[in-house]
């Protein structure tokens, strides 16, 4: 099994997807590849968890999808951030930074 996303802290996948989409609209596979590239191969979500997260984000109104054709002339659903999604990404990034710093301080304390 190559499902490395299970190593992800619960809920962070959503945040990471939002981050990848912040740069440009992208389809499902593109998101997976970008996540892998940006994490240098550490995170490689499988299709199931990826699309579950996408559906969740879509239901929450953080992203929206649109069918377009790819550079290879294939139809694919491209997802993009909504305003709400952008706001959420900002707040989550801040919160994440705060938490990581706090955890780091605890771990370094000993």
């Amino acid at each position: 099994m190559t499902d490395k996303s299970s190593d992800l802290v619960q809920g962070t996948l959503d945040m990471l997807i939002l981050k990848t989409l912040a740069l440009e609209p992208m389809h499902g596979y593109g998101i997976a590849v970008r996540l892998e590239q940006m994490s240098k191969g550490v995170f490689r979500p499988n299709a199931g968890s990826l699309f579950m997260a996408i559906q969740r984000l879509q239901r929450d109104g953080l992203i929206k999808g649109e069918w377009k054709s790819t550079e290879n002339n294939r139809r694919a659903k491209y997802y993009m951030l909504t305003d709400q999604g952008r706001k959420r990404l900002n707040s989550e990034t801040r919160e994440w930074g705060r938490q990581v710093a706090a955890i780091a301080r605890i771990l370094e304390a000993s």
Binding site: G28, Y29, A32, A47, F51, T70, R75, A76
Partner: peptide
Amino acid sequence: RELDEELKGFLEMAAEE
């Protein structure tokens, strides 16, 4: 059908890669 198409696209793109 949409979900199907999306997933299939996903797989095919991965295969193309």
